[in-house]
Nucleic acid binder design. Structure first.
Lengths: 357, 357
DNA sequence: TCCCTGCGGGAAAGGGCTTTCTCTGCGGTA
DNA sequence: TACCGCAGAGAAAGCCCTTTCCCGCAGGGA
């Protein structure tokens, strides 16, 4: 690879001058020398060594991002938001997939720190795991101590800047909707129980049911991977254990799609025989048939805000932005089937007021 | 940020020794010194500066990847394959999204070269744009001249190693299937015409129709963005111009999903009134309703092979691996409707032999 | 006893770039 | 004419590591 001194030699100037021309430094350089340098660059196909540059320059410009999996639409949307702001400010993003492995998350924090990123964004649910949380916070604190900026998306544990989707209210909205439609036998297809996102959404859901004098026993919850296959499998287990279910809440849309697949395979009509609710409102939700009723989270906006937080001025106290969840009614949730109502021995409640927001 | 000399000073050793301990060098170091260094590392929360390391070390280990968009399932799958091999070999991947912007692709080649990647993989359709192709090849040649390895996925233009999905045969299979089902009025929802993927798939499709004595006039093709909304919109235009269509071939699955949305909105039953064929077989294809009949491409395998090519031994002559397309019959393609057959005034042909492969 | 060998450790030379500092030569002022 | 100031270029000092080279020392063989 050609180096800067190759260019300088070829142009008959010093490396200092060559550098100034190439970087458009503020120091003036004669047009003639400038021409010569530019010509040499072109001839040698010179590209500056980014590592040498980063080493020599003082200021750090890239931003590190740790997500569970960019190809998961949930994170793809968040990342879109992150990118938008980063690109506007001419920042490069380094994105790492942890695949929900806490150890890998820890490693990536180190890795990104080693790469001298100016800021770090952790997106995706935290874990109910004290040892891990402590370790992570130590690492983040060490990073912040050296001037690094940190923001998290959807994690309670970190004490600094955060963007929080209102998962609990989202769960609540889902529960209220289903109650309003008269459902009593509600099953839940949940993500891994170690994730705070799972427990938050579950808590909101449970609260809504409790308020309506219903309950959510553990036997009506199945935990599985937060993806399509996890949803399909959990739904199957749920149905096997409790064929009387009239509604299923999936704790994210991928799982909901898996749930729909299982229901279709078993010949259960949605929403006539059984209702399904998703969570997140990822783009595909409107394109499945029937279109998915779900709880929308402003995913892109979450990314935008987190990046703005981290690239903006530092605040004296941590800022926490809570973004609202919103119920999106489509076609997978309907009133509880008549036959079941009879069986259940109670009339369905009247539909409660609009639960949008 | 703590540096290696900070660690060395604290441990009372030379930077050389500290480096050896930290990197597990082959040179032996007394246990006592090792302990001291490790302790200092922990106390200072030391993380080596990756840029300094890359500068000091000679060998390059990261691999650069340029795709259109990782969050597009097509590329997500390919990337999964790339990652699998890279991770096995302890390589880091730098993934860049060009969003189908040729200039951005050119920039990213420079960027990745500047980051000293050991190899470069370009995935995604090439462009019918000679000026761009020449520029790109020049840049790649310059990179290869300095020892960089290059492989492309799905691009004809590059003269080196390549993994090529058999788009043309895929198009052919789609056409043959539809002919076999008796369709004559076939519309095409195509991606941007500047993409070679579009024209390749179209060419195969056209060949199949021609062989069956049918044709594919330009008026039955609509070009749009290669995504869901593009597919929805192109389908609408197609239907407006030609309401007699009995089948639609979408040139990728995202577009097919958009097509299904438009058809649903217009109350056209799939496949009873109109058939739909997709392309790629991305994971969601089996989860839409009706499940999408499509042409499968071995996406993950494409990634695996490209990465293997680029990390394996250099071949004296360019290697081109062509990966077969395969028809996957699901529920969106059916026989041409009876009423239309009558209108068309000709009996449907007998279904031709199995076209799988 | 002397020399050679080998081991553990440090000094120092890069690696490619940026940037400060220094130097030269010119135009302008007193 | 002498001096000052400044523009434009180069020299050189880092930035933070890795790794080669070298040195001192202890142990073993002759």
């Amino acid at each position: 690879m050609a180096t800067l001194s190759d260019v300088a030699r070829r142009a008959g100037v010093s490396p200092a001058t060559a550098s100034r021309v190439i970087n458009g430094s503020s120091k003036p350089v004669t047009d003639e020398l400038r021409e010569r340098v530019l010509a040499a660059v072109a001839e040698l196909q010179y590209v500056p060594n980014a590592h040498a540059q980063l080493l020599a320059r003082s200021h750090r410009s890239a931003v590190g991002v740790i997500v569970h999996d960019v190809s998961d639409p949930y994170f793809a949307e968040i990342t879109r938001g992150l990118q938008r702001v980063a690109t506007d400010q001419g920042r490069l993003l380094m994105i790492c997939n942890s695949y929900r492995d806490p150890d890998r998350e820890l490693e990536y924090v180190e890795l990104l720190r080693g790469h001298q990123v100016a800021a770090l964004i952790l997106a995706g649910s935290g874990y109910h795991d004290e040892a891990f949380t402590r370790q992570l916070n130590e690492k983040l604190a060490a990073y912040e101590a050296t001037g690094g900026r940190v923001a998290v998306i959807g994690r309670h544990e970190h004490s600094g800047d955060a963007v929080m989707p209102d998962n609990r209210t989202g769960g609540y909205l889902a529960g209220r909707e289903l109650c309003g439609l008269g459902h009593r036998a509600i099953g839940v297809v949940a993500g891994p129980r170690i994730l705070t996102t799972t427990t938050d959404r579950l808590a909101g859901l449970r609260q809504a049911l409790t308020e309506q004098g219903r309950e959510l026993p553990e036997r009506r919850i199945r935990y599985a991977e937060f993806d399509r296959d996890g949803g399909a499998e959990a739904t199957a287990r749920l149905l096997d254990a409790d064929p009387e279910l009239t509604a299923i809440v999936a704790l994210n849309d991928s799982m909901a799609i898996g749930a729909l697949a299982t229901l279709r395979a078993r010949g259960l009509a949605v929403p006539q025989q059984i209702s399904v609710l998703g969570f997140d409102d990822m783009p595909i939700a409107r394109d499945v048939t029937p279109a998915l009723t779900t709880v929308r989270l402003p995913l892109v906006d979450m990314g935008v805000r987190a990046m703005s937080l981290v690239l903006g001025v530092e605040a004296p106290t941590p800022r926490v932005e809570v973004l609202p969840a919103e119920l999106v009614r489509r076609d997978t949730a309907g009133p509880v089937p008549l036959s079941t109502r009879a069986t259940a021995g109670s009339a369905p409640r009247a539909r409660r007021g609009d639960s949008t927001s």
